[in-house]
Design a protein around this nucleic acid. Sequence first.
DNA 1: GTCAAATATTTACGCGAGTAAAAATTTATT
DNA 2: AATAAATTTTTACTCGCGTAAATATTTGAC
Lengths: 341, 341
Amino acid sequence: MLHKIPNMEAFARVSGLSRPTISKYFHDPDSVRKSTRDKIEKALETYDYRPNVYAINQNRRLTKTIGVVVPYLADPFFAELARRIERRCIDAGFSPLLFSSHGRRALEVDILHSLRALKPAGVLLAPLGRGSDHDMLKDFCEDVPTVLFDANIEGLGEAFVGSDNFQSIPLMVDYLCRTGEPPCFFEMPPVNPNANKRRRAYVDAMMRLGHEPQIVHVEGEGWGFEEVGYTEGILAIERHAFATGTVLCSNDRLAIGLLAAAYEKGLRIGRGQGCAMRIAGHDDHPFARFTCPALTTVAQDYESISDRSVDALFDVIEADGKAERRVETLFPGTLVMRASA
Amino acid sequence: MLHKIPNMEAFARVSGLSRPTISKYFHDPDSVRKSTRDKIEKALETYDYRPNVYAINQNRRLTKTIGVVVPYLADPFFAELARRIERRCIDAGFSPLLFSSHGRRALEVDILHSLRALKPAGVLLAPLGRGSDHDMLKDFCEDVPTVLFDANIEGLGEAFVGSDNFQSIPLMVDYLCRTGEPPCFFEMPPVNPNANKRRRAYVDAMMRLGHEPQIVHVEGEGWGFEEVGYTEGILAIERHAFATGTVLCSNDRLAIGLLAAAYEKGLRIGRGQGCAMRIAGHDDHPFARFTCPALTTVAQDYESISDRSVDALFDVIEADGKAERRVETLFPGTLVMRASA
DNA sequence: GTCAAATATTTACGCGAGTAAAAATTTATT
DNA sequence: AATAAATTTTTACTCGCGTAAATATTTGAC
């Protein structure tokens, strides 16, 4: 175990250099001569010293932390996005801090409050959406360089990166109509703007193809989508609420619930012979390939979304926290044909 | 929008009080007289001031942050535990910071390094287990009050809280034997000690009941359990590797993969007439009730585990970072009978 | 109204670093 | 070797707040 060094002053002594030089080194190792860099790194092997984060950040106006806020971390979709974002932040020399609002407005507000206190270099925020405190969020975005992702809120933040629901939903509707009955749309009360956009995209797509849109709207609160999909799926099936045997769900988690309901009701799902129903989702949730049957869905471009969000934030940070203008980047989805539809 | 106040000095002026009093207030609002508290809170409504986190923590030896580290956040099991833990920390006036090792040793090491720099009041750590850097972890635990949960590492940390695999696995084995063929055990290379314990518990339980243990061990790396369960499940089914028609998986995610494989192979899963196979899991993963068929499993006691972990950490923190002795708390699992077995 | 107890103010120093300016030293160039 | 350029050292001040000690003020009890 190496000997602990309490502060930079002491470390400067044991490494035979002056404190400002050490300070420069930790700010950027390449800013000091090779020979002194070697001295420092040799000392670092012998002594256990790392600069005090709090003392460092006290003076810096902007720190090296980046806040990442998602609405619901128990959703592997967000876990996956967060994972990629974290990675890219680390690679760029930042320290990401991850927060989940757990679907609750009060928590999102709290998180943003304490995040502001941390003076982060920037924040990547997937807002609750409908559940967000709009005014508070606006204040926040004015103080802290923020890029929104996944769920857009008009005019908030320096940029938005997400999926193009008006491309992805028609893609799926087209596919379903081409290969069988036109789909009904299975949705719950929208927790965020995507859900709304998807419904509208569904209606548009159906009209364009000359079909009557059939929306099966069910009640259900919160972010326990599987639960809602299951419970309300059971009811919908019992009441013959699905006008056709093809159901497009507003997201994969809802589809997973519906799949479970259909299974329990003895309905065979899929596009083959003897199947009573086709079910499709949206997102290509990490678990979608392991449902029974595997879920046909539209894949969101995780990689592009996370990469682009981070890039956008870095741009903003370099531009002193203000983007020239607010850019919205929408990535197209890709059809993932599996067994369920 | 309220007027921004740069520091405590200035805030003291506008609220007509002295800085030390303000300092006391933020340390504990009840430590000042009601009348001054009111003054401060009135000023707080007019002016936008919150103390600088970094300046505060620079002097405090122990901060009010608590680190929460899990091995793999995209696993809803950990997401759920983390959620409960976070909540309890917040309620107790701490600021939890959540980190995921994403299954990688290097990342766990990095996280612990930067966590140490944050001088947290304590850390709740679910270690990678087999993948952890044992020596580094030991150093860490000596510096920072740490409570391990989920995966135990002998002698590390001030306490351990987890599930009692030697109770839960026999519970399931008994049930399966009582209601049908004795189970084989489906497992992959153990990423953490639980997997090992579960295998041993399975062997013990089978022997006790006078049955020959049948272990189906498959290859597979990392934390993509569903993927391994699926891929290797397909192979195992093709090769008739399951000695009996009942399979106990070392965890639910593996079971979900196997379920998908069985479905694809046209095997009907469940305990009823015409079923080819029974599949059981372990953990009661949040999605386990939505598989097709719903997964029979052993529920881990999420609530007790998270609550007890936090309590244990608080005890340690109050006892100045050192527990009298290292206590291991194991909670029993409960059988969750669903349709799959 | 008096006096002790409780609370607030004043004053002053410390924490661990960032950083700026001037002086001193090292390195590179010719 | 002389000189210019690059780097390091010295010195000193800043940041925002914790905290301790002495002093002053307010409060409550009688």
